[in-house]
Simulated assay, not measured.
Amino acid sequence: MPLTFVLDPPMTPALRDGVLELWTDVSNAGGAVGFVPPVTRETVRPELLRHLTAMSEGRTRLLVGHDEQGRVAASTFLTLNTHRLMTHWLWLYTVMVHPRHQGKGYGRDLLTAAADSARGIEGVEAIRLTCRGGLGLEHFYGSCGYKEVGRVPGAIRVAPGDDRDDITMLLPLG
């Protein structure tokens, strides 16, 4: 059953808690979304609050995918680039599909919905994202049309002695 995607949904306590639960569960399943497991909701909450603040300021937009039960099953943040010479592209942050839904094609669906959403933003011509090396994520994003445009070796330290590349990917929207 496909997910139902909504860009800029009204931020209710239930939605906030759903995104927080998603982010915590994805992190604890080993997802590369800014944390290393184990994490609790209280560990993730400050980062979510930073995203919510950026949303309230109009700098970031939330794309959410709900499953057939209405639960938050996938989400990502589209962040507008505020540098005057770079407003023609935006950042895609924290791309997440709940572990119970992985392997169903929902990651591709989320990226398609994000690209469609970005195309609806005046002046946006491309999406950039970064991903953590060592997990094969660049191959997934590549299969969805993104091209690797940069790599910083060892820029992400997930543990002492475990440094990963920070990989930048680009999707032209034209």
Rank of each mutant, 00 (worst) to 15 (best):
G18R: 07
V124P: 02
S27I: 06
A115E: 15
V152N: 11
R41D: 03
D17T: 09
S143H: 09
M11G: 00
W23P: 03
V72S: 11
R132P: 01
T79D: 02
A73M: 12
L92Q: 08
Y106L: 01
L80S: 12
A155I: 08
L22C: 00
Y93N: 13
V33C: 10
T94M: 07
D166N: 05
F77S: 15
T112G: 10
Y106I: 02
D25N: 07
V149Q: 09
N28W: 09
L15M: 04
M11T: 04
G18N: 05
D25S: 08
A118R: 12
H98G: 08
E57H: 15
C144E: 01
T94S: 06
S143L: 04
V36D: 05
A54G: 04
H88D: 11
V124W: 12
A14V: 13
L129D: 00
A113Y: 12
R41K: 14
D67C: 00
V64M: 08
W91C: 00
T130V: 14
G174D: 14
R164E: 01
T87L: 10
F5N: 04
Y141H: 03
P160V: 14
D8P: 00
Y106H: 13
R151C: 01
T112V: 15
D162K: 06
V39R: 03
T82K: 14
F140Y: 11
M55F: 09
L15W: 11
L49F: 03
H88L: 10
D25R: 12
H88I: 12
E21R: 09
M86F: 13
T12W: 05
L173I: 13
G134K: 08
R16L: 10
L49Q: 10
D17M: 03
L90H: 03
Y106M: 02
M86E: 12
T168K: 08
P10A: 11
E47S: 15
H139I: 05
E57M: 15
L111T: 14
P38H: 01
P9D: 00
T168A: 09
T94L: 08
